[in-house]
Simulated scan of single mutants.
Amino acid sequence: MTAKIPDTMRASILLSQDTLTIEERTVPTPDRDQVLVRVAAVGVCGSDVHFFREGRLGDFVVNNPLVLGHELSGRIVAVGSDVDSNRVGQRVAIEPQRPCAQCQECRTGRYNLCKKMEFFATPSIDGAFAEYVTIQDAFAHAIPDSMSDEAAAMLEPLSVAIASVRKAGVTPGSSILIAGAGPIGIITAQTARAFGAKDIIVTDLIEEKRERALKFGATRVIDPVATSIESLDLDVEAFIDASGSPRAVDSGIRALRPAGTAVLVGLGNSTMTLPVEQIQNLELNVTGIFRYTDTWPTAIHLVSSGQVDLDSLVTGKFDLDHVREALDSDLDPTSLKSIVYP
């Protein structure tokens, strides 16, 4: 270790549903293949909010104290014995997961589906609302000095968008419908534009969010309550749901042209009714997205080249003592992305 590192650190702890506290914890020591990162910025994700308000997200239940936060950037301050010591001092964006590297999913390149995955801020793996974290060397991605800490942290949601747009088959000249103009929807619209989509249609119930989508890649916005999506005959090649709304999923699938692709990203109902006859008769592809694989290099390029703007998405900044306010910031319709600075 070449940097002065304290013995303890502050961390925001979710003790149980709707109960947060600040604790002093021991600074973790990196394993031989890990790096120790001084956390610079952490984005607040919808999954953090679910764990905070409901104590669970799908099958993941908070039964023990948990550190939230998985969208993060920072600086390497120490390395394990197998890691190049020249990495100390590097600014990095963190891919917040540790696959087993042994199972069939890992060996075939689908490590996001590893059944033994250790993912930040998922019970019982602590996340990044803390001053220091450790991560495997390969998942600490070096970033250019031109990239802000905030943008580097948001490479994680950008990775979700990249994985979704790839799976949707978006290519130059494509048409795409995106349901939901929250952070993922807005970032997906920018990503679709970067991938060459010509028509990028975004739906949302809230006027402020629709107007914002037009500033970040959307070529057209629709209020799905005022206007029936099914009546518009959009005939798009791709549909990405970033809302989790069963109604949005149904109408989005119906808006696809033959052989189109629907990608379900939003956190919605565990079960919902789908237009099966439409899917069969038009040979539609309906799939989901679960995190990402090998997206950080693309994400770094898209931001560094100016094709995706993440800095302008930041609408709130909070320290560890105000994590509750950061988690509740989504209650304001003008809020888009909040950042915590440990």
Rank of each mutant, 00 (worst) to 15 (best):
M1W: 00
T2V: 12
T8R: 14
L20T: 08
I22F: 03
E23Q: 15
E24G: 11
E24T: 15
P28F: 00
T29Q: 14
T29P: 04
V35S: 07
R38G: 07
A41E: 14
V42K: 06
G43F: 01
V44H: 06
V44Y: 10
V44L: 02
C45N: 05
F51R: 08
R53F: 02
G58M: 04
V61I: 15
N64S: 13
P65L: 00
H70K: 10
E71G: 11
S73Y: 03
S81C: 01
N86F: 00
R87Q: 09
V88T: 07
R91G: 09
V92E: 00
A93L: 06
R98W: 03
A101Q: 13
T108M: 10
T108E: 12
G109C: 06
L113H: 12
K115T: 13
E118M: 13
F119K: 09
T122Y: 07
S124L: 08
V133L: 06
V133G: 01
V133I: 14
I135D: 07
Q136H: 08
D137P: 10
S146V: 11
S148Y: 05
S148I: 10
E150Y: 02
A152P: 11
E156L: 10
K167G: 11
G169T: 04
V170D: 05
T171M: 05
T171A: 12
G173Y: 00
S174I: 02
L177I: 01
I178F: 05
I186D: 04
R193V: 06
R193I: 04
A194D: 06
G196R: 07
A197Q: 08
A197R: 09
V202F: 01
E207S: 12
R210D: 01
A213C: 11
K215M: 12
G217D: 08
G217T: 11
E230Y: 01
E230P: 01
S231G: 06
L232Q: 14
D233Y: 01
L234N: 03
E237R: 11
F239P: 10
I240P: 04
D241H: 05
P246Q: 03
P246T: 02
R247D: 10
A248M: 13
A248S: 15
D250H: 13
R257H: 03
M272H: 08
Q280A: 13
T287L: 07
R291I: 10
L302E: 03
V303L: 09
S304H: 08
G306H: 02
G306E: 07
E325P: 08
L331Y: 02
L331I: 04
L331W: 00
D332E: 05
L336Y: 03
S338Y: 01
I339R: 02
I339W: 06
Y341H: 14
